[in-house]
């Protein structure tokens, strides 16, 4: 048995290629108009394509955008 334990990466922020940013835990996001939005679920998807109808949260809209309009 190895002396060192196993440690798994478990980041608080995960950037999804072409999609949202996942946030683990409780956070408050201030939008461009200065309005605060509190996360309510264990993991939240934050919009990165700027076209979500639920902004600042992701609603899957990036999936219908042409590839060049999707976040990198």
């Amino acid at each position: 048995m190895s002396a060192a334990g196993t440690h798994f990466e478990h980041p608080d922020v995960v950037v999804c290629p072409g999609g949202p940013m996942l946030l683990r835990g409780k956070h408050t996001i201030e939008d461009a108009d200065g309005v605060p939005h509190e996360t309510t679920r264990p993991v939240t998807a934050v919009c990165r394509c700027d076209r979500s109808a639920s902004f600042p949260w992701c609603d899957g809209t990036h999936r219908v955008l042409p590839a060049k309009l999707r976040p990198t």
């Binding site: 996942l22 949260w57 609603d59 899957g60």
Partner: peptide, 14 residues
């Protein structure tokens, strides 16, 4: 489900 599944689809795959 709009917002929950926008998270869940990423979690499920990634």
């Amino acid at each position: 489900h709009v917002e929950a599944d926008a998270v869940h689809e990423q979690l499920a795959v990634r």
